[in-house]
Amino acid sequence: MSREPEEISLRLPHIELAAQVYGPANGAPVIALHGWLDNAATFARLAPKLQGLRIVAVDFAGHGHSAHRPAGAGYALWDYVHDVLLVAEQLDWPRFSLLGHSMGAIVSVLLAATFPERVQRLALIDGLVPPTIEADGAVATLAEALRGRLALSGKRKPVYPSLERAAQVRQRGVGHVSFEAACLLAQRGLMPVAEGLTWRTDSRLTLTTPMRLTMAHVQAFVMALRCPTQLVLAEQGLLAPREHLTELLAQTAITVHRLPGGHHLHLDDEQGAQLVADCFKAFLSAP
C-alpha cells in the first residue's frame, strides 16, 4: 500500500469535511477519528501498516483541512457523532468499523453505543470515555465556559516563523509527542499568514466544555457497546492514572492491550505504530 493517502472532500448537508483515504476500494471499511486539536495525519504511520483495509481518516470539523462550524455553533461530542454518521452515509457504508485515538476514541464509543447496528468493530487508542463531572460541579463549569466564550474575540492565535518552531511548541501540548510526530501534525494543521504560520484549528476548540457527562452517563454508553472492541492503553498515556478506568473495564468484554509509549504511541515512531498495527490488523480485517 502506498504511504501517500488520497485526499477527498466530504460535503455534508451542514459542513464540508476533509479526509485522507488509505487502502483498496474493496477493503473492509474503517472510519478513523483523530484526537482533540490533532488531525487526520495522526494516522500517517499506522494506516499504511493496516494493509487491506479501506481507511477514511477524517479531519473533524474545526480541525485540519475541514471547515469550521458557523458562528454561534459549538463542538459538542454528539455533534461529531452526527458528522461521522453523515460521513458513512456519503461513503455508502451501512456498516463499518471505527478506529479512534483519544477524542476520536470517545466519539467512536458514543457512536457504537447508540447505533450498534452500524458499527462492526471498534479499535481504540488511548481513549475510551470523556472527562466527567458530577452534578455539583456543573454550575461552575458552565460559568467558566461562558466566560471563556465571551473573552475569545480578544484573543489571537500564535504565529510561528517556521513549521519546525510550531512543531516544537506542539511537542509540549496535550499528550506529549515526538518531534517527528509533531511535524506530521503541523504539516496538515498549519496555514500561512502574513507574519508566518498559524494553526488552522478553530479557536473555539480551546474553550472549556460547557456541560460534561457524569460517570453514570459514560458507564451507560460503555455498557451499551455490542460490537467486538479492542483498546490499546499506552503505559505513559493519558488514561494510565485514571483509577475508575480499571473498574469500568472490568465490567466489559473489551480486550485491552497495554503497550509501551505515550499518548501518541501510534504516531511517535515506526516501532510504536507497528505495535499498534499488530494489535488491530487481524481484528479490523475479520468479517
Rank of each mutant, 00 (worst) to 15 (best):
L91P: 00
A277H: 08
L225W: 11
A41V: 00
T252P: 07
S9D: 14
H82F: 13
Q90Y: 07
G272H: 05
L85C: 13
C279D: 02
G261C: 07
P24G: 00
V87M: 10
D202P: 08
D126N: 05
L110D: 00
I55Q: 00
L91M: 09
K49G: 00
F96R: 01
A140S: 08
W36H: 09
L207I: 01
D202L: 09
L53I: 02
D38K: 04
T132M: 08
V174K: 12
L245D: 02
V222F: 10
G154I: 08
D92R: 14
V276Y: 09
G72R: 06
P228M: 08
D83N: 07
V174P: 12
L124Q: 05
L17I: 01
L275D: 09
E195M: 03
E134N: 11
L128T: 03
L249R: 04
F179A: 02
L207D: 01
T255N: 13
R149H: 11
P260M: 03
A277C: 07
L77Q: 06
T214F: 10
L197K: 02
S108P: 04
L248S: 01
R204E: 02
F280T: 01
M211F: 13
I31E: 06
V174Q: 11
A234I: 00
A41R: 01
L77V: 06
C279W: 09
I106V: 15
D79N: 14
S153G: 07
M1D: 08
G100S: 08
A47Q: 02
V56M: 06
H176R: 13
E117W: 10
G64S: 07
V129F: 12
L146M: 14
I31Y: 13
A19Y: 10
L213H: 12
